[in-house]
Amino acid sequence: MHPAELVAIDGRTLKRGDAGSPLSITGLTVTYSGKPVVFSVDVTVPAGSMMAIVGPNGAGKSTLIRAALGIVPRLSGDVTAFGEPVGKVRDRIAYVPQRASVDWDFPATVLDVVVMGLYRRIGLLRFAGRRHRATAMACLERVGMAGFAGRQIGQLSGGQQQRVFLARALAQDAQLYVMDEPFAGVDAATERAIIEVLRTLQAEGKTIVAVHHDLATVPVYFDHVLLMNVRAVADGPVATTFTPEHLQATYGGRLAPAQLDDIAAALAGRRTAAAS
């Protein structure tokens, strides 16, 4: 399926989509009205990993995953999921959009939204049956929202809305979870609840990719990271990639030295924890 390896002039092997990877992006470029917001990004997400996509505001993090999933058109680049075009493996990919991307005044209950995750399983003509509702309830249970099933979605707090979106993704029973800022504007308890669910998913062998804005928690929550600012700066295991030098290159002068020290300390803590 893949042609012979491409080798650059300096002898590096150019990455081509890794056949088995849950998500492999090659040379992805996206422009908005002529201006590139994502430029030639290559990244391969290892199976079973939890990868954070990190970068400053306007770095194209959300655009990268939205283009990879085909929500926004891309100018160039290849995207494969599990070695196939994304369109062929949609049932294995669960997308959790930004909470603010929908109108929460929409006439729907919490359970209605989670049942939307079963859309492909229910089909066009049938109504959602008791079995489907039971599946949806089980997913709400996993995110600690079972008591809210009958609520109108507009009555939820930000953290609760995020949990509902996660439950909708869980209902799909996918292999790859792509999340856009899952921790933005949620309370600490929700953050813990979400990370708990994500760790369980990872333990089940699922792969998770999330746009993440909080540098301090990157080494705590994730094992892989992609640093990007329109272009990809570095990607790989957190221990070797999430370094002050790479962060400096990603954020330019926008990070305070104290922040970098904190990250270095967090990384050191992570290494000793891994060693013991």
Binding site: G70, I71, R90, Y95, P97, V113
Partner: peptide
Amino acid sequence: FDPEYAAV
């Protein structure tokens, strides 16, 4: 409700 999710 959610056109982007629908697209995915």
